[in-house]
Design a protein around this nucleic acid. Structure first.
Length: 436
DNA sequence: TCATATT
């Protein structure tokens, strides 16, 4: 009764948890275990699964009985083999926080500014062997009054913590030391993300148009007439220059019934309409005008934008029907792109693009919008810094046909969007020669 | 400047 129920596998202080990525989703824990046991002792394998669907997320944890065994698994497998079905080699590394857990790292605060490493070392050595010690210093090497300190074992660190935290004043100090476990990387990331978030919400005009978007557009550009869409000049009356899609607004790209388009003719100035009317265009029959609609939710572009408005190729045979990826199903809940902007869906070889110099404020949806004029966008992914959420300004767009991708390259490579010209190329392929 | 993911 006083017995504490043990986990069925004893994962003790010495155990090391490894994170393994690029595990094909169909693999079982037993299969992963069998593979790793060839190289190291393994206590346990846990496939990481989607909370809702229970489907594998393509990665797992592997628990080894010691650091030595874990290191064997890492050096034998990390980037060393590509499992059948995976797109890149196995990733094997210490799980988040695992290295820190093994470091036994303490934060020491309230140090007098004039104490040296030796002073700190002299005090803390009483509790164990110090593996690493640094006092944080400013630009002039002036102490910031705190330090990080690693012990050989957790017991030693804990002993120091309990003996000194809030209880010991260093010489000349009127306040006791603060000794606590150092923040983990995860905690620091969370803090940083929090900070970014609060800064972003204080940004003035967060929703305003991209300042350089208009000026950057090549207004003289004449898109190829594809026999399909024609944008009535009046439709500019309801362009929205939001950079972020509005929350809780159904994605209406490609789905506005033509009967609604009359609304778009309201509220425009005739002068503006005629000044931007496409004199040089092969103007399609007016019966097609009814099929003009805002091609995207969120960010939209003036007519001269190569991929927008004019750019849809017919996906179905009949003129005037609404081109959309999922024409046969699904009425309103999701846009074709929105559902697939996670980045995991790749098109056939030659249909996947790598894009650089994406404007900072573009997310997956904005990227998809910018490229959806050339074909069916299977997925669009802008990469963001894991810690800060800030765009890395590059990403991927996948089409279902190489011709669409090539067309997008022709039209969009060098296209100025924001302050810079896009670089649009075929994605490098690391999946060429797969093992059997 | 070329692919994530952390029960």
């Amino acid at each position: 009764m006083a017995e504490v129920k043990k986990e069925k596998k004893a994962t003790n202080e010495e155990s090391v948890k490894l994170f393994v990525g690029q595990v094909p989703k169909h693999m079982t824990e037993a299969q992963v275990l069998a593979m790793f046991e060839e190289f190291a002792l393994v206590d346990e394998v846990n496939i990481i699964k989607d909370k809702a669907t229970r489907a594998s997320r393509g990665c797992c944890f592997v628990i080894c009985p010691s650091r030595e065994e874990a290191d064997k698994a890492v050096s034998a497998c990390h980037n060393k083999k590509t499992l059948p079905g995976a797109s890149s080699p196995l990733q094997v590394k210490y799980a988040d926080g695992e290295l820190e857990r093994l470091e036994h790292k303490l934060f020491v605060g309230m140090l007098p500014k004039n104490v040296s490493e030796d002073d700190v070392s002299a005090l803390f050595s009483k509790y164990g062997t110090i593996k690493d010690l640094q006092i944080l210093r400013g630009s002039q090497q002036t102490s910031k009054g705190c330090a990080f300190l690693k012990y050989e074992t957790k017991e030693q660190a804990l002993e120091a913590l309990e003996a000194l935290n809030g209880k010991y004043n260093m010489e000349g100090s009127s306040v006791p030391l603060v000794v606590k476990w150092a923040d983990t990387e995860k905690e620091r990331q969370a803090r940083r993300a929090q900070k970014v978030q609060s800064q972003a919400s204080n940004m003035p005009n967060a929703d305003s148009p991209h300042p350089s978007l208009f000026g950057a557009l090549p207004m003289g550009y004449i898109p190829p007439y594809n026999g399909y869409g024609y944008q009535a000049p009046g439709s500019y009356g309801h362009m929205q220059y939001r950079l972020r899609p509005m929350q809780n607004q159904p994605a209406f790209n490609n789905m506005i019934p033509s009967v609604n388009q009359g609304n778009s003719l309201r509220g425009i100035t005739p002068d503006l309409a005629s000044s931007i009317s496409p004199r040089n265009y092969a103007v399609p029959p007016t019966s097609y005008v009814g099929s003009a609609y805002p091609p995207v939710s969120g960010l939209q572009y003036p007519m001269a934008y190569p991929g927008g408005i004019m750019g849809h190729r017919p996906l179905t045979g009949s003129p005037g029907s609404v081109p959309q990826a999922n024409a046969s199903s699904n009425s309103s809940s999701s846009s074709p792109v929105g559902a697939n902007s996670g980045g995991q869906i790749e098109g056939p070889p030659g249909a996947n693009l790598f894009i650089y110099h994406i404007p900072q404020e573009f997310g997956d949806q904005e990227l998809a919008n910018a490229f959806q004029g050339f074909g069916r966008v299977l997925s669009a992914k802008v990469f963001v810094d894991k810690a800060t959420g800030v765009s890395k300004c590059f990403g991927f767009v996948s089409y279902d046909s190489p011709e669409d991708a090539q067309n997008a390259i022709n039209m969009m490579n060098g296209f100025q969007l924001g302050g810079k010209k896009l670089k649009v190329q075929l994605k490098r392929d690391n999946k060429q020669n797969k093992p059997y």
